[in-house]
Design a protein around this nucleic acid. Sequence first.
DNA 1: CGCGTATATTACCCAAGGGTAAGAAAAAGT
DNA 2: ACTTTTTCTTACCCTTGGGTAATATACGCG
Lengths: 227, 227
Amino acid sequence: MDTRTPPPERSPWLPFESRRRARDEKREAVLRTAVQLFLEQGYHRATLNEVADRLNITKPALYNYFRSKEDILFECWTIGQERVEDRIAEIAAADESGLVTLQMLVRAYAAIMASTFGASLVRFNVADLSEPNQKATLAGKRRIDRAFRNAIKQGIADGSVKPCDVKLTAFAILGALNWIGHWYKPGGELSPEQIANDFASRLTADIAKRPAKKPAEKKATKPVRKK
Amino acid sequence: MDTRTPPPERSPWLPFESRRRARDEKREAVLRTAVQLFLEQGYHRATLNEVADRLNITKPALYNYFRSKEDILFECWTIGQERVEDRIAEIAAADESGLVTLQMLVRAYAAIMASTFGASLVRFNVADLSEPNQKATLAGKRRIDRAFRNAIKQGIADGSVKPCDVKLTAFAILGALNWIGHWYKPGGELSPEQIANDFASRLTADIAKRPAKKPAEKKATKPVRKK
DNA sequence: CGCGTATATTACCCAAGGGTAAGAAAAAGT
DNA sequence: ACTTTTTCTTACCCTTGGGTAATATACGCG
């Protein structure tokens, strides 16, 4: 009767064990478990009891770290969003041509979409957030959109990209990218990096002015981890 | 206090009015109202009471037409899926080259994605369906996927399409298309037909062997309505 | 008209699950 | 050791909303 199955993820709350880890680490663990569950079962079907169970704690303990379920959802989204915006800032700082910038954006965004928090940007329903949080997500989406559109515009201006409808081009590219968050499953044949590289050339092939050669892959095997 | 707003959609149940319309018409009205609400607020936030209210009836009346809320959700999905599959069958029967077939598929699918039931294929969460219904949706998605992949394969075989990774190409195209269901809003600048035509050439430009000319638009102004 | 059937309504049930109150159990401070 | 603070648990509350039972109303038909 006491053959309890081990928790699916290494948890800071080991049963009958030392629980002295730092607060932030625990917060993060909650988020990781929650995203996972939200993605698996959907936000509404996933219960806080289940989240707590996976962490070897009980539901009310979660309220030491978050004020509500929606709070958790929003933080998951925030993490994904921040990762994207960090990369966007980096890429903007590189100050490359429009086409290269676009390709870098595609590669970065694709890789993030193939991660748990990245997928949460696309798999969660905006309607499940409070009104102020909805505003925040909307603003975030717009910033991403603008980054892509700006790269395309710049490319047209600097001659690296063929003239085209900027808005629809961005929609098409972002659509293909966002969809990754729906089909990508960790154990598949393709690694996130492979997908990212493939999409970087694929999605820019038709608007690249030069005969679309593969976008430069600096340090493809060991991508720079920031921070 | 009795300035009651008129129901947002013409409903077969006009208050104090003749309610003798055919059963199927009512079923359909329920579905239309339900999809609308599910898309607006998400499946879980939308209540059956609200669906009923919009139709000038009460919740239990809905159970004359559907066995459960999930039943309604699934039927919404089914309608969208059938529309897609009907068009796929038509296009397959046309027996064009791989490239043209692909372009026809893109155009048809894009137009459907910009409709309510079409969007429901993408905006609803599979996890909200019963297990058998999940199976059904999965099988449906696979059939759509196969149609696109087959067109690409055929195109490579008949020389109308450049050799490419069939799977990823299909993912990219379907991603861009599915995303329409997330951003398209009826009152926008672009009509579904415009989007469909644009995407048909845009998404096939890079893999078309001939210098990508616009796909043939037979009867562009007045598309054939089936049945 | 009266009877059966389909369709709606009112009134209710009840499970699920987010959230809270009160207090135990550690951890940390002194 | 004693107190204080943080963390976690047990026990509970309570709204929400899908679903049902019983019943009323309209419709079709002989």
